[in-house]
Amino acid sequence: MFAIIESGGKQFRVREGQQLKVAKMADEAGSEVIIDRILAAGDQTEVKFGQPFIEGAKVVCDVLSHERDKKIIVFKKKRRKGYSKKQGHRQDFTRLWVKTIEA
């Protein structure tokens, strides 16, 4: 069974037993999170679509950890002006484990 969920303004296709990186959540590591913003859910034979969400559907996840992604370099330059700026950025994220999908 799979589901398409919305979390942090992004959409993810998830299945049971999968690890997932989403935008940072306020929940503690080790706690359980219920995501009820399900756009679509189904299996090999049948797929249900919501308008925009499926009512009564939910995905139960465990919060594994809060981490920071790899560093990216933000480099800005204006030619012939002597201006350049180098900056690094690391994005915070939450790692989830998908336990069950109920649709």
Rank of each mutant, 00 (worst) to 15 (best):
Q44D: 10
E32V: 12
Q44Y: 14
R15Y: 04
I54M: 11
G88R: 05
A40S: 14
Q44H: 02
G50M: 07
K70T: 09
R15K: 14
L64R: 04
A29H: 08
I5C: 14
A23H: 13
G82C: 07
L39C: 15
K24I: 08
P52C: 05
G17P: 09
R13W: 08
G50D: 08
F49H: 12
I4H: 10
T45I: 13
V33H: 06
V60L: 08
G50Y: 02
Q44A: 11
D69C: 01
I38W: 06
Q87F: 09
R90F: 04
K85I: 03
R79T: 02
D62E: 05
D69S: 11
Q11H: 13
V33P: 01
E28T: 10
I4N: 02
K77V: 06
A23G: 11
L20H: 12
V14R: 00
K10C: 15
A26R: 12
R80N: 01
A3P: 00
S84N: 02
S65Y: 11
S7M: 09
F53A: 02
I38E: 07
K85H: 07
K21M: 13
E102I: 07
E16C: 04
Q11M: 06
H89M: 12
V98T: 01
G50V: 09
S31H: 05
R95C: 08
T45P: 01
D62W: 07
R90A: 05
F75V: 08
E28F: 01
K24D: 15
F2N: 09
K21T: 09
K70C: 11
R80A: 01
V60G: 02
G50H: 02
I4M: 14
V33W: 10
M25Y: 01
R15E: 12
V63D: 06
L64W: 05
R95H: 01
S84M: 01
G17Y: 02
G56E: 07
K71D: 10
I73P: 00
L20S: 01
A26Y: 10
K81Q: 06
V47P: 05
Y83K: 00
D62M: 06
K78Y: 05
K86R: 09
L20D: 03
P52F: 03
I4D: 07
R95L: 04
K71V: 07
G82R: 07
R90V: 13
S84F: 13
A29D: 07
D92I: 06
G82F: 00
V47Y: 07
Q44F: 06
Q91N: 11
V60P: 03
E46C: 06
A23L: 14
I72P: 00
G56Q: 04
K77M: 14
E46D: 13
K24Q: 12
Q18I: 01
L20W: 03
A23S: 07
E67W: 02
A57L: 04
G42F: 12
E46Y: 15
W97Q: 15
I34W: 00
R13C: 08
V98C: 02
D43W: 00
G88A: 02
K58E: 02
K71G: 00
V74H: 08
K58D: 08
F49I: 13
D43G: 07
Q87K: 15
Q18E: 11
V47R: 15
K99L: 03
K10G: 06
K21Y: 06
E55C: 03
K78Q: 05
E55K: 14
R15S: 10
I35A: 00
